[in-house]
Amino acid sequence: MATSLRNIKSLAPLLDRILVQRIRADTKTASGIFLPESSVEKLSEARVLAVGPGGLDKDGKRVEVSVKPGDRVLIPPFGGSAVKVGEEEYTLFRDHELLAKINE
């Protein structure tokens, strides 16, 4: 896992792209019963791992992205570009594709 974490930190999103990792739903009930992966609903919540420097507006000025690494966000159930590093799965979204930022 340390190798995949090191590799993922070497990825730098370009422009207004944001690298996220879905927060996994519990695969075990409160009473200790393990649920099959196929029955666990994919959550639309993710943790931001890296962000690009931002896109450019029509005048060529940089427009910063709306989130920063460490933020929790809501993402659409489909879309984005899947990235797999080792056994871990990540997704790249454009800033405007994120649905909401979760304020803690």
Score class of each variant (00 low, 15 high):
residue 69 P to D: 05
residue 64 E to K: 14
residue 12 A to T: 13
residue 28 K to F: 05
residue 96 H to I: 08
residue 59 D to H: 09
residue 1 M to L: 08
residue 91 T to G: 02
residue 19 L to G: 06
residue 32 G to R: 00
residue 71 D to C: 02
residue 3 T to W: 12
residue 5 L to Y: 13
residue 37 E to W: 03
residue 97 E to C: 00
residue 22 R to N: 05
residue 3 T to I: 15
residue 88 E to L: 15
residue 12 A to E: 09
residue 65 V to P: 02
residue 1 M to D: 09
residue 30 A to N: 07
residue 28 K to G: 05
residue 41 E to V: 11
residue 97 E to R: 04
residue 3 T to A: 15
residue 69 P to K: 06
residue 16 D to T: 08
residue 77 P to E: 13
residue 8 I to Q: 02
residue 47 R to C: 08
residue 54 G to H: 07
residue 45 E to R: 13
residue 20 V to D: 03
residue 52 G to H: 04
residue 61 K to M: 13
residue 14 L to Q: 11
residue 79 G to D: 06
residue 28 K to R: 06
residue 51 V to P: 00
residue 103 N to I: 11
residue 15 L to P: 02
residue 1 M to F: 10
residue 83 V to P: 10
residue 10 S to K: 14
residue 13 P to A: 07
residue 41 E to F: 01
residue 74 L to H: 10
residue 93 F to K: 08
residue 69 P to S: 06
residue 26 D to W: 04
residue 48 V to K: 00
residue 33 I to T: 04
residue 103 N to C: 10
residue 55 G to S: 13
residue 15 L to Q: 12
residue 36 P to M: 02
residue 68 K to W: 06
residue 38 S to M: 11
residue 30 A to V: 12
residue 68 K to Q: 11
residue 68 K to T: 11
residue 104 E to H: 10
residue 34 F to A: 12
residue 69 P to Y: 07
residue 45 E to L: 05
residue 4 S to K: 09
residue 99 L to W: 12
residue 88 E to M: 14
residue 20 V to M: 08
residue 77 P to T: 09
residue 78 F to C: 03
residue 20 V to S: 05
residue 25 A to N: 12
residue 55 G to I: 02
residue 3 T to N: 13
residue 91 T to V: 13
residue 13 P to I: 08
residue 65 V to Q: 03
residue 21 Q to P: 01
residue 60 G to D: 03
residue 48 V to M: 01
residue 54 G to P: 03
residue 61 K to S: 11
residue 15 L to I: 03
residue 38 S to W: 07
residue 22 R to L: 15
residue 74 L to S: 13
residue 31 S to Q: 05
residue 19 L to V: 06
residue 70 G to T: 10
residue 66 S to K: 12
residue 36 P to F: 01
residue 52 G to C: 00
residue 6 R to Q: 14
residue 5 L to N: 10
residue 41 E to Y: 02
residue 100 A to N: 08
residue 84 K to A: 15
residue 81 S to Y: 09
residue 80 G to D: 01
residue 94 R to G: 04
residue 75 I to R: 03
residue 53 P to F: 06
residue 52 G to D: 00
residue 55 G to C: 07
residue 9 K to M: 15
residue 96 H to F: 15
residue 78 F to L: 11
residue 100 A to V: 06
residue 1 M to R: 10
residue 12 A to H: 10
residue 7 N to Q: 14
residue 13 P to M: 05
residue 93 F to R: 04
residue 56 L to P: 00
residue 95 D to I: 03
